[in-house]
């Protein structure tokens, strides 16, 4: 089994579509990392912006005022020429508490907003990434076996390993591992791509428990990726085509949405909703359909449910593969 699995992994990682995905991920995160680095402020930029704001407040307290929206533009002409329709503005008297408040507000309204990369953004990015990678996992799982049907290589493989269940298990496990590897690779790239911004343009340290929370998100994400790769693989192994499998899953998602409206209890059993519930770690919220209340589900329970779905589909796929004539 190990030798078979290693062969399938070699085959999987050698495929152009998989290599293309890895290359695309590298390109994507390299560009994203550069953009984030450019649009966030370094310590010097933050200090300059802060100094400008302090100067405005200082000038304001000293008696210089500007109409809202016209402040701080050293190249603009006289205020009266630029804003002829702006009604005369009367600032609070200098030296009063109202004036201090007014000036503090002016200082905050400066256009040079400080943009720092918050460490907590890692979680937001990872969570957004989970959604995208979940869909990609379906494609990876489906294409791993769909391409074999397309190229008709299964007959050749069976003449080298006639134990169909074993061959199927090795191929399914390889599909799952390729998808999970791609997931971890993407998350590692995310860490690496945002690291320059986090270290040079970062603000604040991670709150207590942040990294364990992030790690939990990533581990749950990996679990979901494995499940979805398994689902994609199982369906494509029956439809004998990647495209048919993806169309089937798309239709399934539509039927799932419509089905919940007709049969509200389906909400608790929906594959797609439970994936979201498990991945976010927040579980499935109870839902009130007005006349019908559906109980929620914990994240752990949602995870078990989607794993059961994947295992049932893979068992079905194995049964079909064992009985099917391979031409």
């Amino acid at each position: 089994m190990i030798a078979l699995l290693l062969v399938e992994l070699r085959r999987g990682f050698a495929r152009r579509v998989i290599r293309g995905l890895f290359a695309l991920a590298v390109l994507n995160f390299a560009v994203a990392g550069v953009i984030v680095f450019i649009v966030t402020d370094s310590d010097a930029e933050v200090a300059a912006k802060q100094a400008a704001a302090d100067r405005v407040v200082r000038d304001c307290l000293a008696g210089t005022t500007y109409p809202p929206g016209s402040e701080f533009d050293p190249f603009a002409g006289p205020v009266e020429e630029r804003f002829p329709d702006v009604p005369a503005f009367t600032a609070p008297d200098v030296g009063t508490a109202e004036r201090e408040q007014f000036c503090a507000d002016r200082g905050r309204e400066q256009p040079g907003e400080v943009r720092r990369f918050a460490v907590t953004s890692y979680r937001d990015v990872s969570e957004a990434l989970n959604g995208l990678l979940t869909l990609l996992a379906l494609v990876i799982g489906a294409t791993m076996i769909g391409a074999e049907w397309g190229a008709k290589t299964l007959a050749t493989h069976l003449t080298w390993e006639p134990r169909r269940a074993l061959l199927y298990a090795a191929k399914a496990l390889a599909a799952l591992l390729v998808a999970v590897t791609f997931y971890f690779f993407s998350q590692a790239l995310e860490l690496a791509a945002l690291a320059p911004a986090a270290s040079a343009h970062g603000a604040g340290s991670a709150p207590p428990g942040f990294w364990s929370d992030w790690l939990g998100l990533v581990v749950r994400g990996a679990g979901t990726i494995g499940v979805m790769a398994g689902v994609g693989f199982a369906i494509a192994s029956v439809t004998q085509s990647t495209v048919f499998a993806l169309v089937f899953i798309f239709l399934l998602s539509i039927v799932d949405g419509i089905g919940i409206l007709v049969w509200h209890d389906l909400y608790r059993w929906s594959l797609f909703r439970n994936i979201g519930a498990f991945q976010s770690g927040r579980g499935l919220e109870p839902f009130d359909f007005g006349s019908f209340f559906v109980a929620g589900r914990s994240a752990g329970s949602a995870g078990l449910l989607i794993m059961t779905y994947a295992l049932v589909l893979l068992a079905g796929g194995t049964a079909v593969f064992r009985r099917r004539d391979i031409n």
Partner: peptide
């Protein structure tokens, strides 16, 4: 199966892999 060599109709291998890579992957299976 290790003692049975076979070719059924037109041989089918991964189209984008080289002949050598296709054979190496098969060889590694056994």
């Amino acid at each position: 199966i290790r003692r049975v060599g076979s070719m059924v109709e037109t041989p089918t291998f991964f189209p984008t892999f080289s002949g050598r890579r296709n054979l190496r992957l098969l060889a590694a299976m056994n």
